[in-house]
């Protein structure tokens, strides 16, 4: 069985106050040396049927129309085998 991981991140030009708040908290907690933090979302999709090109196309469509709002966010789709091997898609 295959797992597809969709990562969604705010576009670089969009202000991310949540990431900034995390970054500002780091030195207070003793974590030094982090100059920037940006926060995103990760979706793990367990694919029931075969993970062929058609299935991947549907998943990319899903990411583009629903999981990400491409007005403000970029996304990547990665296939991950159950044994942990990764392949860029």
């Amino acid at each position: 069985m295959a797992r597809v991981v969709v990562d969604v991140m705010l576009k670089p030009e969009i202000l991310d106050p949540q990431g900034q708040a995390v970054q500002r908290a780091l030195p207070r907690l003793g974590f030094e040396g982090i100059s920037d933090v940006r926060q995103g979302k990760r979706f793990e999709l367990e694919v029931a049927g075969p993970l062929d090109e058609a299935a991947l196309t549907r998943i990319r469509e899903m990411a583009e129309t629903f999981l990400a709002n491409t007005v403000i966010e970029d996304f990547t789709v990665k296939v991950e085998d159950v044994d942990g091997a990764k392949a860029e898609s």
Binding site: I14, L15, P17, Q18, A21, N69, V71, I72
Partner: peptide, 17 residues
């Protein structure tokens, strides 16, 4: 309305959170 793209742009978390 922005999510449906009937209106352009998007809404995000207030800058001061």
């Amino acid at each position: 309305l922005t999510e449906t793209h009937l209106l352009p742009g998007a809404m995000l978390r207030n800058n001061h959170l």
